[in-house]
Design a protein around this nucleic acid. Sequence first.
DNA 1: GTCTATAGTGCGATAGAC
DNA 2: GTCTATCGCACTATAGAC
Lengths: 191, 191
Amino acid sequence: MDALETGSSLAPSAAQSRIIAAALDLFAHHGVGGTSLQMIADQIGVTKAAVYHQYKTKDEIVLAAAEAELAGLRTVVDAAERERSRKRAREALVAGIVDLAVRRRRTVGTILSDPVIAGFFADHDAFRDVMYRVRRLLIGDDPRAEAGVRTAMLLAAISGAVIHPFVVDLDDDTLHDELLRLARRFLGLPG
Amino acid sequence: MDALETGSSLAPSAAQSRIIAAALDLFAHHGVGGTSLQMIADQIGVTKAAVYHQYKTKDEIVLAAAEAELAGLRTVVDAAERERSRKRAREALVAGIVDLAVRRRRTVGTILSDPVIAGFFADHDAFRDVMYRVRRLLIGDDPRAEAGVRTAMLLAAISGAVIHPFVVDLDDDTLHDELLRLARRFLGLPG
DNA sequence: GTCTATAGTGCGATAGAC
DNA sequence: GTCTATCGCACTATAGAC
């Protein structure tokens, strides 16, 4: 996983964005390990060599795709941290995460839980930093086990529910509203 | 995915159980697509050909592994359906699922959300049957969107929370108790 | 930025001996 | 039930022309 160390925080070019979009779509359907560079190249309509011209290894593509997903979450966290109170920040964060999850309904759930992506999340500073800020906003320095479990459940519930078979028939707006309402209520449960 | 049609509900032999256990462990760490038959064979300490003597294709191994995981859930659903009231059945089901999720903490989350396994779940009658029974117990014939979203969140929260980074430091017993308490409370929220 | 062509590796799967 | 040996194929990755 040497790709983790390369400077890769630059904005992707148009060609790179096409690769990332195709990769995210394929990762969601076949998993990271089940997606080949040939599949990515075919989806865009170019050859493997053209893909390699943009990213030197498959790992770099995985990293770029994961970073593209992370960028959305970072924007939400940035906005939440600008709120004036802890309470308002928490509510803004949850609302933003619900928004994000519904918008990326077809891809995000499968991608977040892919073991290869999870490995990147565990090792890469940019990922750890965002998760640390989420943790600080939602848990703070509450040492009780309940705080950690409650927050883990909330985040898992949001990102997991959007791809659950029980809600496949719901349109995005209905799903969004119910999800936000129930997430708020879960957040405000008496300790 | 022709393996889905073969009669595969027989109890696995000792050799088959070793393959399934190794496969589940590797699937959790590398994903289904990222796990090769060579890796499975190496983990057990045999050759690929020995693995092929038990299962004719990789798909059959994936199916057998998924069925092994499903068996635990089916046992829980069976017990819940024997309860006398709908309310008691729901509570028994949630308690059983929490039990199961914590016990298989290291493997179950990643495996359930793997796109390849999800494909099996969508196509295979045995999987659909169990999910239908879970749905009937937890949602019944409630047509409101809230019922579906709430249930999807509950199930996603349980299976997702056990592998969440926010709870890695918790021991199984503490995690189990907090998870069950919060899941019960979420289940009993006023509509 | 994309192409053709190719090197080298590991894959899923099979045959046949023990 | 496990082994050795092998087939054909798809994979990641590279070289060099346009």
